[in-house]
Design a protein around this nucleic acid. Structure first.
Length: 888
DNA sequence: GAACTCACG
DNA sequence: ACGTACGTGAGTTCA
């Protein structure tokens, strides 16, 4: 039997909000209303076993009711932000439960529900309406019941015609007459003064309707008669306002509202994010009329797995199954993948799990497995295959053919989720419990490789989880239109990065050591001088001790404080410099100490004794915007701004005699991306003519000609441009330019007046983020912003700036990644020996043999510029030299 | 391990 | 009024 439940989303969420104590998850998101709503929902599903559900929401502030009566719902308090931020969550949760929801601009949830009850009734279906609003009782009939919430939201009281008769002595259609007479303060419906529920009911029992009461006022007397006569129009209007409109164009078919049970895989991640632990436990008990097939909602025990620990004798058996391997786990430990120790390999089919110790692969009989591993035409699915590739590489084992990397897919699906482990993902997708690596291996000093039985079982469980997660990720990627991003960009890039990392960058160790000696002498001089001036020796590297010297001993003015004491950062020291000569020396010391410890000593430690190179590791799954990051060592923050530090770049050299370092960087890529996505005509025009963008900005902001832009104006314009890309705030700009907030605010205003398309973009993207809960790049890379509707000003502002910045920074990241894939292909097709070495966000660095130099100087910028077609041209500038210092 | 500082885009 | 510019990684100190 079909049964439809219609829920007044607004009514329930409001009631839940005020009925529940405040509740937040660990990131400060308010969740009490969603919790109350969900609680009710689960109970309802359990008790009513509906075949169809739809939740209706009000859309927009103005409805057709306001056309006739502008004060409709006037005097209502604004929705508290703690509640507003829960609407997107509620919608997301409904979607994850497989429950349809609907809203239509200009109409209230009531009207949508009224229309649907009418339709359902006409086709002979049973309907239950759930709301806190008594008005709804007017739709009650033999087939339509209305459940009114009682005591908060978890309990409901169903009303049919009989119950309405018992309670009010009225027919359902008379409810609007009741409202017409008594009014409703919460909706600001006036009714007739002096008439409350008691009087209204008495009148209706006698006369039947508002019209009839008004026609018989002569039979009444006293104040009541007077009020009825004087407010007859109010009564008629109130009745009309209370009447639910039942002819809304609702574009939802019966099938759209089908509810076929909650799928744990979809619901669990959302409930987990909301941290609804008790609801998570209740989930298995709940199911729709369609039942619990697929066992999705059962909390199952870890399945028994068929695990084979492979030795030389059993290798032939593995080989028989190689063609049906569906997932692999190549387990290793150690922070740096280049130095990772491999604990073993798990090759899994749908039914069997083969554990191979690393040593086994060195046996002669393992040849087929090795060629399988290294065959790029055999697709492999696994977890963090990038790391596996590097770990195997240093063991002399080739790995190729990565097709689906679960870690990388998880990153694309939610780049800010911090637990991307297999165990975490298993929990997120509602799979059987999977112990974390930490639980199995221990951590820190306690880390220990367990015996082979425990290890192989753990890896089999991980592989088994991967096989279940992969199809779920595939359908999510499909749904979010991320297939291109994943399969054509990030997966191919993963292999390219591994190649770059294996290649490494040659470092002139002697030159680096010499630099170290140079720095050392200068540092020693500075330290001696500083101690002398201070009159005491202290630990210059300790901000605490330095603060005591500067602010207690020398009584310099305190510019800024940190959580724990005085701030002594460079910004503060700059300001203190005029007060005391010691400050300048400290600044110089800081600069050199940084160079020495991070770039000389740090880099020296990272040079591989095997290759004489540094092999960085590009992390592809950390940056929330889609950028790469670089570790062990970080080669994306080698000094360049100050000459002293820039010298470090001289030690990065080609790895072959006579070759060159070739580098190309995008010019103003982020502002070009902004010009494209904002559609701002002025900005686009500027790039079409390849103007100096900061000068152009200065001209427009200050309203002057090109010749009148002085250095200071250009500097300010440049800062404004940076600010725009970062998600501007007057405070931030004022800090950067050392001006007042007011002045900064004026700059910003003038900028937006000059570039109105940019203003529109910034407004729109924030609105979009508030509506959807996420923002996207041009290639559909997503970033969720759960705090975008937070009531906390700081959290919300931060999310708003992120909403502005992420599409820009993220699209720029998309573009250079595209360029890398294209360049890799270009090198291959031209059979070039040149090698891609580094990516530094907007720059690509290569080493190039002399006979390819001219060609590469042409190919590289061309390829970068055509990586993605925008409404403005992309521009890449190339330069070369004998080392990285010269190639800039 | 958190806090501070500073290198890069 | 609220108080931060966006995104990273690494070295040092100190509780």
């Amino acid at each position: 039997m079909d049964k439809l439940i219609l829920i007044d989303g607004n009514s329930i969420i409001y009631r839940a909000f005020f009925a529940m104590p405040p509740l937040t998850n660990s990131s400060g998101l308010h969740t009490n209303a969603v919790y109350g709503f969900t609680n009710m929902l689960l109970r309802l599903i359990h008790e009513e076993q509906p075949s169809h559900i739809l939740v209706a929401f009000d859309a927009g502030k103005v409805t057709f009711r306001h056309e006739g009566y502008q004060d409709y719902k006037g005097g209502r308090d604004k929705t508290p932000p703690e509640l507003s931020e829960q609407f997107p969550l509620m919608r997301e949760l409904l979607e994850s439960f497989g429950i349809a929801w609907f809203e239509l601009p200009g109409y209230e949830a009531d009207d949508i529900i009224g229309t649907l009850t009418k339709q359902a009734e006409e086709s002979g279906r049973e309907v239950l309406v759930v709301t806190g609003d008594k008005d709804m009782l007017q739709v009650v009939s033999d087939r339509v019941k209305v459940a009114l919430t009682r005591k908060g939201v978890s309990e409901v009281e169903p009303y049919g015609p009989k119950e309405i008769e018992e309670r009010y002595g009225l027919k359902p259609e008379q409810i609007i007459d009741l409202k017409g007479l008594m009014g409703d303060t919460s909706d600001n419906i006036p009714g007739v003064p002096g008439i409350g529920e008691k009087t209204a009911l008495k009148l209706l029992h006698q006369f039947g309707s508002v019209e009839s009461v008004l026609a018989h006022t002569d039979e009444l007397k006293g104040k009541m008669k007077e009020n009825l006569v004087n407010h007859a129009d109010d009564a008629r209007m109130s009745k009309q306002l209370a009447t639910i409109y039942r002819e809304v164009q609702v574009e939802r078919s019966w099938e759209d509202m089908t509810f076929s049970g909650i799928e744990a895989e979809k619901a669990v991640p959302v409930l987990r994010r909301l941290e609804f632990k008790s609801l998570l436990e209740r989930l298995p008990a709940v199911s729709g009329a369609a039942g619990t097939e697929a066992g999705a909602t059962e909390r199952s025990e870890s399945p028994d797995l068929d695990v084979t620990i492979v030795d030389a004798a059993k290798l032939s058996e593995v080989e028989k199954h190689l063609h049906e391997i569906e997932g692999i786990v190549i387990e290793s430990y150690g922070e740096n993948p280049h130095h990772a120790t491999i604990m073993g390999l798990m090759l899994s089919t749908a039914k069997r799990h083969f554990f191979l110790p690393l040593e086994l692969l060195k046996e002669e009989e393992a040849k087929p497995v090795l060629s399988w591993l290294g065959d790029e035409n055999i697709p492999k699915r696994g977890y963090d295959l990038h790391r596996a590739d590097l770990a195997l590489f240093w063991q002399g084992i080739a790995f190729a053919g990565a097709e689906h990397d679960v870690e990388l897919a998880a990153y694309l699906l939610d780049p800010t989720e911090n637990d991307q482990t297999i165990s975490g993902l298993a929990a997120k997708y509602g799979l059987p419990y999977l112990p974390s690596d930490e639980e199995v291996y221990g951590k820190g000093a306690k880390f220990k490789v367990p015996n082979v039985d425990i290890l192989s079982l753990h890896l089999a469980r991980k592989a088994d989880a991967l096989l279940r997660i992969i199809p779920l990720q595939r359908s999510e990627l499909e749904k979010y239109e991320m297939n291109r991003l994943f399969y054509d960009l990030e997966m191919p890039l993963s292999r390219i990065l591994a190649d770059m990392e294996k290649q490494g960058v040659a470092v002139n160790q002697d030159a680096l050591k010499e630099l170290g000696v140079e720095f050392e002498t200068q540092i020693n001089k500075l330290v001696a001088r500083i101690y002398e001036i201070a009159g005491t020796e202290f630990n210059l590297n300790s901000p605490k001790q330095l603060g005591e010297i500067l602010f207690d001993k020398l009584s310099l003015p305190v510019i800024k404080k940190t959580k724990t004491g005085y701030s002594t950062d460079a910004e503060v020291l700059e300001k203190l410099a005029p007060y005391h000569e010691i400050v300048q020396f400290i600044l110089e010391y800081r600069q050199l100490a940084k160079l020495q410890s991070t770039y000389v000593e740090g880099l020296l430690k990272e040079i591989s004794p095997k290759t004489g190179k540094v092999h960085t590791y590009f992390r592809q799954t950390v940056a929330a915007t889609g950028r790469l990051s670089s570790q062990f060592p970080n080669l994306q923050n080698i000094p360049i701004r100050l000459e002293e530090g820039r010298k470090i770049r001289k030690v990065f050299v080609p790895s072959e005699e006579g070759w060159y370092i070739l580098s190309a960087d995008y010019s103003q890529i982020e502002l070009r991306v902004l010009a494209h996505i904002s559609g701002d005509k002025g900005l686009q025009e500027a790039f079409l003519h390849d103007m100096d963008i900061h000068t152009k900005t200065a001209m427009d902001v200050f309203g002057v000609g090109p010749d009148q832009v002085d250095a200071n104006m250009r500097r300010s314009a440049k800062a404004v441009n940076f600010g725009i890309v970062y998600g501007i705030s007057d405070y931030g700009l004022s800090q950067n330019l050392n001006i007042t907030r007011k002045e900064a605010a004026r700059f910003i205003d003038q900028y937006f007046d000059a570039f109105q398309g940019v203003r529109r973009y910034m407004d729109e993207i924030v609105k979009e983020a508030k509506r959807d809960g996420y923002v996207k790049t041009l290639l559909e890379r997503r970033r969720y912003l759960p705090e975008i509707n937070a009531s906390n000003f700081n959290l919300r502002s931060f999310a708003e700036r992120t909403a502005m910045n992420t599409p820009i920074q993220g699209t720029a990241a998309d573009i250079i990644k595209l360029a890398m894939v294209l360049m890799d292909k270009t090198l291959y097709e031209h059979k070039l020996k040149s090698r891609m070495l580094l990516q530094v966000h907007d720059e690509l660095v290569f080493e190039v043999p002399p006979d390819e130099l001219e060609l590469m100087k042409k190919l590289l910028p061309e390829t970068m510029e055509k990586a993605l077609q925008l409404s403005v041209p992309l521009k890449a500038e190339v330069s070369c030299g004998l080392n990285w210092y010269e190639a800039k």
